[in-house]
Amino acid sequence: MTDVRPMIEVRGARKFFGPLEVLKGIDFSVARGQIVAVIGPSGSGKSTLLRSINHLETLDGGEVWLDGVKVNQTLPRRAFEKHINSVRQQMGMVFQHFNLFPHLSVAENIAIAPMKLKGMAKVDARALALKMLDKVGLADKIDAFPARLSGGQKQRVAIARALAMQPKVMLFDEATSALDPELVDEVNLVMKQLAAEHMTMVIVTHEMRFAAEVADRVIFMADGAVVEEGKPDDLFRNPVQERTRSFLKKFLNG
């Protein structure tokens, strides 16, 4: 029966930035192998929600679960540090601004976590890096430094870096928002490939078309709350809420 257990579960997530309530009690869950896209206007809290899944943001209320393990447990400081590091090793995250390590080569960017966190030998880690680079179509860049790569290539390396830890889920925080338009497709292609391999994914995005294409379920957020969610076809074609309609209209016209 463990198969029905959701891979990610968020219950009553609340978060304040000062007096501002950015998450007003969010509930959602992601099944194993499911792909959920989170859309919504800037400031709707969708990035904060994503970042609270791997505890880059600390929730003020509510719970986050990963594969049956509570992420935001109350533990003594050292014990929690150990717990959260092991939880994070099971979640890959891809950032808007790539955040590759500029002092390390592409191979080292990918190999450092498996080497230092899993004790993988250097040769094995390099082989793994090559395998991951192959997946994102950048095997020839293995010894390049990040500064020599285009934005699209950087993001693909960042995806390879996250995949090298063999995560159970991948979290994408506006992975293509910082890219030149002509570089968006190469990154989207990699994400679609992951989708085809049944990776569990949460994708925060501004790209409605991509969300419609790749997601099993779309969540529309506004003002720190989930306004509407459903299958992409339903949500994009027949949104029920007025708030969703006006947002989508603005997007499709703009």
Binding site: L56, F95, F101, A113, K116, L117, R161
Partner: peptide, 9 residues
């Protein structure tokens, strides 16, 4: 953040 998200302490 990138390092922490990979699981580095």
């Amino acid at each position: 953040e990138a390092a922490r998200s990979l699981g580095f302490g």
